[in-house]
């Protein structure tokens, strides 16, 4: 771990930024789906990875988990755990998109709403979607490694120097 004095001063601000950015992405992703849960369910089904019995649970549950995760990160409550869950979920997304690409499916990821359907003339944007999710996964990793940040509930509860 880097422990130069300069890094020690910068790190909490750096982590604050990472926390707010990742949290905001989760909130936007979740809220863009909750208006049409049936659409979100279709988007999950379009990947053809899960058994039909699980498709509605993931499709309807995921948007709300995303919003909760986003709110926890923005508040800085349970930052390290929230970041760890973010990494896990993002890894699953990356695997799902990569598998859709590898199998030659023509779908849209449904990351920010949409039912996985693609208009006839539109090409899938798998590379962009993957690059974005890898970037977000990196952000989550930074945050899991250095969860201490400014303006956080964790800081208020456990003291500003505790790495929980």
């Amino acid at each position: 771990m880097i422990t130069t004095p300069r890094w020690a001063a910068v790190q909490p601000w750096f982590s604050t930024l990472a926390r707010l950015a990742l949290g905001a992405v989760w909130i936007v992703a979740g809220t863009s789906k909750i208006a049409d849960l049936a659409e979100s369910v279709r988007a999950v089904r379009a990947y053809r990875l899960l058994p039909e019995s699980l498709v509605p649970l993931v499709g309807a549950g995921l948007p709300f988990v995303e919003i909760a995760l986003g709110l926890l990160l923005v508040a800085g409550a349970g930052t390290r755990v929230g970041a760890a869950v973010s990494i896990l979920v993002m890894a699953v997304f990356i695997a799902g998109i990569a598998s859709a690409w590898a199998r030659g499916l023509r779908i849209e990821c449904g990351c920010f709403g949409g039912g996985g359907d693609l208009a006839a003339a539109v090409e899938p944007a798998y590379a962009t979607e993957l690059a974005r999710d890898v970037g977000l996964l990196a952000l989550g990793t930074v945050l899991a490694w250095w969860p201490r940040s400014r303006w956080s509930v964790d800081g208020l509860l456990f003291g500003p120097t505790e790495d929980l």
């Binding site: 909750i34 849960l37 549950g61 709300f64 988990v65 919003i67 909760a68 995760l69 926890l72 349970g78």
Partner: peptide, 15 residues
Amino acid sequence: VAAVLLVSAGVGIAI
């Protein structure tokens, strides 16, 4: 955190 996330998923499924 796990409890919050699980309850959130439950809310979505119920809706």
